[in-house]
Design a protein around this nucleic acid. Structure first.
Lengths: 245, 245
DNA sequence: CCCCATTTGTCCGTATGTATA
DNA sequence: CTATACATACGGACAAATGGG
């Protein structure tokens, strides 16, 4: 048992939210696996050095997220727990990487269009300035929980059918295959962690103060020509990343 | 100019803190590089849809961090900006990876001891249960800003002098070399992003609600024998990670 | 030098949210 | 449920400092 420090006051983050974050972390760490329940409100209040009402506010927030369910007379039951492990390697594939960890993978195309590449996108895809690219905005989920929101760019000349194929097949890898690209590799990944903005809170069904991990990545075909540049925002508290070098 | 969404109310996270987080991100993204200053308080208040006083609270927090400095009559100057890029590859080296990005790298040994390996540590280092390991607690900084806090474990039988060497040489790589290990490679890295706990806030000089990236990694010698298992907490808003696969 | 627009600093009061007892 | 204390957020007004005509 790790001695947990008292929450901090006057930091701009309400005590109930700090406690909600700690309990969420403890749940995903498996600290409460022995009972399958969160400790009683009075115990948590003692542990964090706050009033029981404050703990109740925190648990209400977690119940709102669907993470726990309070049952009068019994306690607060844990409805969901662990993080999904997402492997990052030279052959990173979203669906395949999650295989076995979730029963059902969902993918939803929110929007798509053809646009002139910004200087950032053109540089990443090694295209001339102003080249046309296909932009896809998607959200992926595991067992109904949103895991990531992505904006991806593909060279329009080479992959004109990305949007249509993605909708039908539900996977970038399959959409590539349907357009004659059988294999591709990850050439670069940059990662930053930060607080979610309002749009991400909504897309990923997060609560305020939540963390997203933003990954900027480039995939290329086996000849080294870039085929995809994407910006993926992961719901940090639902994911763990394993880097395979 | 990206249209920035209004901050959200009644979420348990104070508006001034949400705004501080957004402005910190904008600074590190270089959004204000043209002037070297944060926009005027009145402009920020309009942008976020809040009162000027609320913006002032946010800027006061950033000034407290040393990120900006307000000058009456002129504006709020940016004192520091970008994130340090930390490369993760098969040959990840802390000091070498940061080379050139910061003028001065600091490393501090907070504590060291010999302990019996926990089951987690023993498994990672491929040691028999109960084997003795050297535990090092360190904090590393760039140009005076704490960047990471690490707890590292080494097989005590093979590297009995880790603590003494580290203090003298200021680097794990050099401490290894002084004990006859010339080369080692990263065999696994697991990454999680979460809110910092009270201890991490203190060690890394962060303000409440801050994000840490926790990396669990194993290094092994060229024969594949594990030589180090470590748990490093990075100050997320000061770092960017590049994964080289 | 003064004048003036801009920008930060400080003060007042008031309403609401958070936390305790 | 009540009552109390403090933090947060707003609105307005004015002072103080800066830099450019």
């Amino acid at each position: 048992m790790v001695a947990r420090k008292a929450v901090e006051r006057q930091t701009g983050v309400a005590l109930w939210r700090q406690i909600a974050d700690r309990v969420r972390l403890a749940i995903s760490n498996g600290d409460y696996d022995a009972t399958g329940m969160v400790p009683p409100e009075t115990a948590l209040a003692r542990e964090f050095g706050v009033n029981r009402h404050t703990v109740r506010s925190a648990l209400a927030a977690l119940a709102e997220e669907g993470l726990v369910r309070a049952v009068q007379g019994r306690g607060t039951l844990i409805e969901r727990k662990g993080r999904v492990t997402y492997p990052i390697s030279r052959r990173t594939r979203f669906s395949a990487g999650l295989g076995g960890q979730v029963k059902e993978i969902g993918s939803q195309l929110l929007a798509h269009r053809e646009v002139q590449a910004s200087s950032e996108v053109a540089a990443a895809l090694a295209l001339p300035p102003g080249a046309v690219v296909v932009e896809l905005q998607t959200v992926s989920s595991g067992d109904g929980r949103p895991l990531s929101a992505t904006i991806a760019y593909f060279p329009a000349g080479r992959f004109p059918e990305m949007a249509q194929r993605y909708v039908r097949l539900g996977s970038v890898t399959k959409a590539f295959a349907a357009q004659g690209l059988d294999d591709y590799v990850r050439v670069s990944t940059e990662i930053v962690a930060r607080h979610a903005d309002a749009e991400e809170l909504k897309l990923l069904k997060l609560s305020a103060g939540a963390i997203v991990i933003e990954a900027l990545s480039v995939n290329a075909d086996v000849e080294g020509r870039p085929v995809e540049y994407s910006r993926t925002r992961f719901a940090a508290d639902r994911m763990k990343f394993r880097i395979e070098t």
